[in-house]
Design a protein around this nucleic acid. Structure first.
Length: 613
DNA sequence: CCCAGCACGC
DNA sequence: GACGTACGTGCTGGGT
């Protein structure tokens, strides 16, 4: 199979390609190389390390390219002192302001170098982020981009260090010629991708977004990731024991009721117990693979039929809390500083949002009481406080702003409770007479509208009948006519030019918008409405992050930005800085962009994330 | 090793 | 009759 691929492939690879890849391993030659690099306007570089985890990684080498087919490799010693000496030779390159430093996934190299005392400065260009802006729905790996855009298949890292698994070696194990060819090729390919993507960014008016938002944000994210956040390990260890006890107790209750022992973590086995043995629902829904559906909303509807359901739901909640958070988080604490360091992916979410991985710190529980306690385990260091600042209703405020919906804009300007205000208008009653149910229904519509929700789903959520839900949506659009117009306009725009845009010009291409399949087209239409809203909110938060970081550094504060959770920023601040930092954060967030709808930020301070929120 | 089902966040 | 609200990450089970 593999042979066939190679035989039929028209892609070239390192054997066929004209290139000059040289290693440069004596200081005199390295100094000459640097003089040469400093004369260039654009230089591509790459670092080779022993690990993808920047905190554990050791530098093994660096490569540079400023011309197609030409690249240099600098092997580095196993001795850290010697590495630092070599890096001093290259410091002028990394710190030169007006030299465009290009790399693929630059945040990785930035973090590695920062740990060796080199802070990359000035003009930067990440080819991965460039491609993300050009095609946010696509894949952005270097090997993939090389094959697609350069028709060239780079040497895979696995041919050098082995397939992943416990026998995988490190880059240091490879011989010098192998290291040189691989590293130099990466720099060469990245340089060629730069030459392709840079003019495309310009042509698509994405340069501002790239150079003024995404690249500065990359540095902010690198610093946040290196900072990490502290956990209350003692509490987590005790909570793990408590949850385990609660789970075993729930399990025996469930087994007793069902008259059988089975694996509670298996939805398949649970479904068979509930719907075959116990016959709880003769019309039980099946999933697409033919299993019984046992998701929360399915079980919720059965809860009045049998007492076992509430125990199962409780079991599920606790099992999730234990496996994903209470047990998993402590295992990801870094030994070097006893903190957890998430990775923010800047190129994953097609709308412009960030994603958080290894661990994901953007989905820490908040809704249930027991879940909230886990937030409490994210603590500030001795002598410091946690500050949390979050935008109130940012997506709704932005859809009001973008659509120019005066009725909604006015409500926000008057500082009204937007859901109550919407309810008053929907039900044509005075604001004071809005009931809890009415407010809650209005809230559901407000959110649903952002996602392009239809009558069926609205009915499902509110408990209204389908026709009532339909009337509610119609009343909503009568209340906010420009919102309806805006949504139709986004779909029309997508059909005409193939994409929609955020306030900062971030694009999302919607190739399915003219599809004949109404399910596929419907999805694209909802994206046409949602992407500009979600994406504009992401733009605003990113701008705020850059401005706050700049201000904190200008004022030489020790306050550190630690986390971003889409509309919330979390900081750690020395106690005597909290007041000043809080003022800076709130001010910069609320003034991140100029809008007629006021942006409101709520700030809290505490010894942990729960208290601060 | 990968996919399905589920649950957590905004 | 099917379809039915956006964007994500990660756990466990189950089949390969």
């Amino acid at each position: 199979m593999k042979k066939l691929d190679q035989a039929t492939s028209t892609k070239s690879s390192i054997e066929q390609n004209d290139h000059l890849y040289q290693f440069v391993n004596n200081p005199r030659a390295q100094k000459i190389l640097v003089q040469n690099l400093l004369k260039q306007k654009v230089v591509c570089f790459d670092t080779e390390t022993t690990s993808l985890n920047e905190l554990e990684a050791e530098l093994v080498g660096m490569s540079f390219s400023y011309k197609k087919g030409l690249a240099y490799y600098i092997p580095l010693s196993e001795d850290k002192g010697e590495v630092l000496q070599t890096l001093e030779i290259f410091r002028p390159f990394f710190e030169k302001e007006d030299l465009l430093k290009v790399a693929h996934n630059l945040k990785f190299d930035y973090k590695i170098l920062k740990q060796y005392g080199i802070v990359v400065k000035g003009a930067m260009f990440d080819t991965m982020i460039a491609h993300y802006l050009l095609n946010p729905d696509g894949r952005h790996g270097m090997d993939y981009l090389s094959e697609v855009y350069l028709n060239y298949k780079p040497v895979s890292i696995e041919t050098i260090i082995g397939k992943k698994g416990k026998n995988q070696g490190t880059f240091r194990d490879a011989d010098l010629r192998t290291q040189t060819d691989y590293a130099a090729e990466d720099a060469d390919v990245t340089f060629q991708l730069y030459e392709l993507f840079a003019p495309q960014l310009k042509k698509e008016n994405l340069e501002d977004l790239f150079f003024n938002i995404e690249m500065p944000l990359m540095e902010v994210l690198a610093k946040m990731e290196l900072s990490g956040i502290s956990l209350d390990e003692k509490w987590l260890a005790q909570e793990s024991i408590d949850l385990e006890n609660d789970l075993r107790a729930l399990e025996s209750t469930i087994f007793e009721i069902s008259g059988e022992e089975f694996n509670m973590n298996s939805p398949k086995q649970l479904g068979e117990i509930l719907f075959e043995k116990m016959q709880l629902d003769p019309k039980a829904k099946k999933t697409k693979t033919g299993q019984y559906a046992t998701s929360e909303d399915v079980l919720q509807k059965l809860s009045s039929k049998h007492e076992i359901i509430k125990h199962i739901l409780e079991y599920r909640t606790y099992q999730k809390l234990k496996s994903t958070y209470v047990d998993a988080l402590p295992s990801q604490i870094e030994k070097t500083d006893n903190r957890v360091h998430t990775n923010f992916s800047q190129t994953t979410a097609a709308t412009g949002r960030l994603a958080s991985v290894n661990p994901n710190l953007q989905n820490i529980p908040i809704r249930t009481l027991r879940g909230q306690q886990i937030r409490g385990a994210f603590v500030s260091a001795e002598g410091k406080k946690i500050i949390s600042a979050d935008y109130s209703q940012i997506e709704l405020r932005l859809i009001a702003e973008i659509s120019g919906e005066d009725n909604m804009i006015k409500a926000f300007q008057d500082g009204e409770d937007i859901h109550a205000s919407t309810a008053a208008k929907l039900f044509k009653i005075p604001l004071e007479e809005v009931s809890k149910t009415q407010r809650s229904q209005a809230k559901t519509v407000n959110f649903g509208i952002i996602y392009g929700q239809g009558a069926f789903a609205l009915a499902e959520q509110t408990g209204l009948s389908r026709s009532e839900a339909k009337q509610m949506i119609e009343a909503y659009f009568d209340t906010y006519p420009k919102l309806k117009e805006y949504m139709a306009e986004q779909v029309r725009k997508a059909r005409e030019i193939g994409y929609v845009e955020t306030i900062l010009g971030r694009k999302r291409h919607l190739k399915d918008i003219n599809s004949g399949n109404f399910v596929v087209r419907g999805h694209a239409e909802r994206n046409a409405v949602n992407a500009p809203v979600q994406g504009s909110a992401a733009d605003v938060v990113k701008m705020a992050m850059i401005k706050i970081q700049k201000q904190l550094e200008k004022e030489k504060l020790q306050t550190r930005m630690l986390l971003q959770v889409h509309d919330e920023l979390v900081f750690e601040s020395p106690i005597d800085e909290v007041e000043l930092a809080t003022n800076i954060i709130k001010m910069e967030m609320e003034s991140a962009i100029e809008t007629q709808v006021p942006l409101l930020v709520e700030v809290g301070v505490g010894d942990n994330w729960l208290e601060a929120h």
